[in-house]
Design a protein around this nucleic acid. Sequence first.
DNA 1: CAGTATCCAATTTGATACTG
DNA 2: CAGTATCAAATTGGATACTG
Lengths: 114, 114
Amino acid sequence: MKRLQQDGCGLATALNAIGGKWKTMILWEVNLAPRRFGELKRLLPGISEKVLTQQLREMETDALVRREVFPGAVQKVEYSVTPYGVSLNEAIGVLSHWGKQHEQRMAAAERNLA
Amino acid sequence: MKRLQQDGCGLATALNAIGGKWKTMILWEVNLAPRRFGELKRLLPGISEKVLTQQLREMETDALVRREVFPGAVQKVEYSVTPYGVSLNEAIGVLSHWGKQHEQRMAAAERNLA
DNA sequence: CAGTATCCAATTTGATACTG
DNA sequence: CAGTATCAAATTGGATACTG
């Protein structure tokens, strides 16, 4: 992900954190429960392994998720949300709420173009 | 702008509304005061006329901004924020706030990669 | 299982010249 | 002034095969 330029109001930082088509959904899933790599792949139909890996690595760098390896006969890696991730998820919730209130209207506006 | 698929939680709607590199800044500017096309071009260094036009049209479709033409010897077009735009701007404010609180930490994390 | 490595396609953004 | 029209460049996302 290319990072946006800082804008002095903090928004670029937040948008960088959720940039990429899947990060908000990944954050949502690991917020519900710790998830394994394969589990996330299954929960996010359509995502490729490459992209899932990329986004997880970036979120790990941003300390939104934590990656833990459990050694064993079968390798196991678990991704869980950090307190930072929890707080970001809450901020995102406000946006979701806005979207929920406006989705009917926006969808109608789109349709009226056709 | 390609629109995201609806996701049932409203987030896609909100992200579509602010999708595109410049929409949040455009919204911010017209929220401060009604702006003319040329004024926005000046206030958003680096944006091309094509992109500015596109994003304004989409925001107009979504009823986030209102476009008014004032006829005269010299043509004048003014863009102003709508109540919908105001409410979206407030939701975005929450994200900005999160970003503001985390930008030092995130910037440091980025640096530690190098 | 949990990734990497490649290669490719789709989109988005940008530069620029032109117009009513 | 306020755009349109083109063409090109930059990114991102996706499909797939392979590995420890």
